[in-house]
């Protein structure tokens, strides 16, 4: 937490094919519950597979599964980047 001044990186801003570790899962109510149950847990590695301009949608891979979510909703997921996936 040394760089408290810089805003935390979010999943929404993670470039394509980059991998990061989830640090915080925000969001509300049943949407957040569902994220957690799909495996979006702090400490989980997430890779951005693609983003789709016409849909405002982001596809990510975690634990070998693929899930798509809205880029705007991915703002509430903080990540710690790991670097590019090979």
């Amino acid at each position: 937490m040394a760089r408290a001044s810089t805003p935390p990186m979010t999943l929404a801003r993670l470039p394509v094919s980059e991998t990061a570790v989830l640090t915080r899962v925000g969001g509300h109510g049943s949407y957040r519950r569902r994220l957690l149950e799909l495996g979006f847990l702090p400490g989980t590695e997430v890779t951005v597979v693609r983003r789709v301009g016409i849909g405002d949608v982001l596809e990510v891979e975690l634990r070998g599964s693929r899930i798509s979510l809205r880029i705007s909703e991915a703002e509430s997921l903080s990540v710690q980047p790991r670097g590019r996936a090979s």
Partner: peptide
């Protein structure tokens, strides 16, 4: 009710 959330699989 909330706008339909999007968590979908391709």
């Amino acid at each position: 009710g909330a706008a339909p959330p999007l968590l979908l699989e391709l």
